[in-house]
């Protein structure tokens, strides 16, 4: 769909395995994500999509395997400090928003830039304002999360992640917890972000959205990448039986 900015891989995932006890949730997953690429992951419940995303920013420590981020190897052997720095470059948006309820919208957004990037309050506030305009919520700068609708909260969460100038954005079912009438406003922001050239890995059940914005669609099942390709290939000419079954049930 969109031209990918370069062929340079920003993330190389090598033989990623994740077990919870004896439950193998990710089985030897390898793939690359290119700079500017928008990858959409689809698959049935329990297939390991969330776990894969969470391993990408080490919220979950992989059982084995490594991730190469711009030529830096990140693995379970990496120290805490370098993991924190790595995470700060990977924005993540959750299904349940996870805004900090004791902080105002502005405080939510500037907290990490101040603490982690050591930005001054004024600098951090300036970029927070820009981001709030981007997501259409500049009027809510002093509001507390509980006074916002789900769609507004999720847009603030996106602004909060963007405030760290991440190189990759991860979305884990960002619209699944929203009332249907609020889904559109969040997808719109995500689409604009995709158009701006952000590298994105998106787990979603919104297939139309996937068709529209994805450069590549990955179908996962039982901890494996079963099939991947352009949206056209995966949605219109799937070759694997499991993909065909999954898409038929939608």
């Amino acid at each position: 769909m969109l031209p990918i900015n370069s062929n340079e891989a920003i993330l190389k995932i090598k033989n990623l395995n994740k077990k919870f006890g004896t439950n193998e949730v990710l089985k030897d997953i390898s793939t690359e994500i290119k700079k500017g690429e928008v990858v959409v992951i689809i698959g049935p419940s329990g297939s390991g999509k969330s776990t894969f995303l969470r391993c990408l920013n080490f919220l979950e420590t992989p059982s084995s395997g490594e991730i190469i981020f711009n030529n830096t190897v990140i693995s379970s052997a990496s120290n805490e400090k370098s993991l924190n720095i790595y995470r700060s470059k990977m924005g993540m948006v959750f299904q349940s928003f996870n805004l900090f309820p004791h902080l105002s919208v502005l405080e939510n957004i500037i907290l990490a830039p101040k603490l982690v990037l050591r930005k001054s309050f004024l600098k951090a506030r300036e970029s927070a304002l820009k981001l709030l305009c981007l997501v259409g919520l500049e009027s809510k700068i002093d509001a507390y999360p509980n006074s916002l609708s789900g769609g507004q909260q999720q847009r603030v969460a996106i602004a909060r992640a963007l405030a760290m100038n991440p190189e990759v954005m991860l979305f884990d079912e960002a619209t699944s917890a929203l009332d249907p009438e609020l889904v559109g406003e969040v997808l719109k922001v995500m689409k604009e972000l995709a158009l701006s050239g952000m590298t994105m890995v998106i787990v979603t059940h919104e297939m139309n959205f996937a068709k529209e914005v994805a450069d590549r669609v990955i179908f996962m099942d039982k901890g494996l990448i079963v099939e991947q390709g352009t949206p056209k290939n995966v949605f219109e000419n799937p070759t694997e039986k499991r993909t065909i079954d999954f898409l038929r049930k939608l």
Binding site: N84, A161, M164
Partner: peptide, 9 residues
């Protein structure tokens, strides 16, 4: 998780 994802220790 949200805090850690932002890079907080």
């Amino acid at each position: 998780e949200a805090a850690r994802a932002l890079g907080l220790s």
